[in-house]
Design a binder for these strands. Sequence first.
DNA 1: TAATAATGTAAACAATGTTAACACCTCTGC
DNA 2: GCAGAGGTGTTAACATTGTTTACATTATTA
Lengths: 203, 203
Amino acid sequence: MLTPLRKGSDYHHGDLRDAVIRVARDLVASEGVSSLGIRRVALRVNVTPAALYRHFESLEQLRGEVSGRVRNEMAEMMILAREKVGPATLSKTRSRARFAAIGDAYVAYARKFPRLFEIAFLTCDALPETGESLAWRTLEESLEELIKSGLLERRKSLKAATLAWSSIHGLASLVASQTISNKEYPLFRKSVLDGVQDAVFAR
Amino acid sequence: MLTPLRKGSDYHHGDLRDAVIRVARDLVASEGVSSLGIRRVALRVNVTPAALYRHFESLEQLRGEVSGRVRNEMAEMMILAREKVGPATLSKTRSRARFAAIGDAYVAYARKFPRLFEIAFLTCDALPETGESLAWRTLEESLEELIKSGLLERRKSLKAATLAWSSIHGLASLVASQTISNKEYPLFRKSVLDGVQDAVFAR
DNA sequence: TAATAATGTAAACAATGTTAACACCTCTGC
DNA sequence: GCAGAGGTGTTAACATTGTTTACATTATTA
């Protein structure tokens, strides 16, 4: 327990809104999106249900907020994984490995937190206005590295980005929804990764 | 109205179970998966809520049943689209067109019925025992055609199938969840289709 | 035709999202 | 310092939901 949710006998919470989203995220992660509810979250945050309506218009909006937070979390995981292989250089193998890392992190997240991945891409009537996603920008950065290290022609870059995202996302989605099992996964993984690399890297 | 839901003053319905799934499907299609409810469906079928529990254990199971029906519906659309380009022959262009048709039908369905596509791939605790999916078998058939017409080596066939499905599914999923807009769609579509064809067809 | 199973209804239950009226806390302007 | 105003929590209620239990009606079968 990092910080107590309520400091002593405070009437005010201090930072409800954020605590609510955090707890909601954890609830979805462990019990699924259909278990996310105003009252259940309120209980865990040790607050009255009505209090949540000071910070969220509806359950639907809270769901959207969780969805947005998860998408950011995913992107941060991707960035972390990329940094872990080493800082960006002009080395071909380096930038190639960094590119592979973000794709791997994407589907690794879906495998580790399938319920979170699910809520991240649910059609949401009330999603927080997000410009270009962090994940997409991260992908673009990696492609830029590939261009600078001479592995990718600039004119092919956009096409590479869209194909890479689609196939990686498809793999992640099929895994998260258990449409493909853990046993089938390695084959799918190899096919997709090879396919993406074949398409991205000029031969 | 094709068939009246209740024949005259019948106490018994005749074929509730099926009528329920049909109505549930339409409800999801028009108002989204979170609007699917026992009472709402019961009302539309002109039946008491408790009646549904003679045919389904829970709302969760009904959701699973709808999900299964939609997956079948998708596969039927794919088969229909494939037949529409013409019967299977050994012609290279023919089998190639038939292969493209099923991929196009897949994402076309997701574009036309995003809410149905969504429920089709929701993680479902109670999904009806389905062996190999009809869609997957349809894909395998098309790959077999490609092999027989000399466009694809048999040893590459499984890899081709997994890559094709992942990327097409990813494209469909990103479209259905509105992660990519209608404006961005054409570019994504071209990238994915080209990428799949490059990977599938030996060069 | 009488018993039995299948399938519907009626009424109740606890739990849910949401709202309105009220209480407390914190801050600003004098 | 302090009065009031706005922000943030509580309490109590409401309509609606999934689900169960007891009962009524129809269909099936021996």
